[in-house]
């Protein structure tokens, strides 16, 4: 066990866990931030996507010991009132079906728009292709990314 001080959503948390504990489970079990989802545990689906200093990473395979001083942003901290342009676009387009993968989709999309505010279709598909949606809401995901880019 070791003590880690994490910067998550602008707050500082101290947690005592095994160094190999994935960031995902620190967030979910220790910080009670369950918006970040478990679905595969092998970085194959993107449901656990969070931002590390603004870049999208798979929290299910990132050991807490590797987080260091990086700023972690989860879906709960993407915006204060749930009104990030990506969140607003997701609502307007009415993307969710079961909704379970959407936190990861949104975090991936927000990171994409951060580095590329006006992505083309292929850039959107490439950036979003690591995120599975079992309900097949992909058309609306693509539309919502475009709408969010407009809302910028």
């Amino acid at each position: 066990m070791a003590t880690y001080t994490l910067r998550v959503n602008g707050r500082t948390y101290t947690t005592d866990v095994a160094p190999d504990t994935p960031l995902l489970w620190v967030l979910r079990d220790h910080l009670r931030l369950t918006g970040t989802k478990y679905a595969c545990g092998v970085a194959a689906c993107g449901a656990c996507t969070v931002h590390l200093d603004g870049a999208a990473v798979r929290s299910c395979v990132m050991p807490v010991s590797a987080v260091g001083n990086a700023a972690v942003t989860t879906i709960e901290g993407l915006s204060e009132k749930g009104d990030h342009p990506v969140q607003r676009a997701w609502d307007e387009v009415d993307v969710p079906q079961c909704g379970y993968c959407q936190a990861g989709q949104i975090m991936t999309a927000a990171a994409l728009l951060q580095r590329n505010p006006n992505p083309g279709d292929e850039e959107i598909e490439q950036a979003m292709s690591g995120n599975l949606c079992r309900c097949g809401a992909y058309h609306r995901i693509r539309d919502a990314v475009k709408l969010a880019a407009k809302k910028g």
């Binding site: 931030l33 918006g35 970040t36 989802k37 709960e76 609502d91 009415d94 969710p96 379970y100 936190a103």
Partner: peptide, 19 residues
């Protein structure tokens, strides 16, 4: 009509059994 749970889904509220 948009999904009544959109706000909870899109802001990561603990609404699933897993949560």
């Amino acid at each position: 009509v948009r999904n009544v749970d959109n706000h909870d889904i899109l802001t990561g509220k603990p609404i699933y059994g897993m949560d």
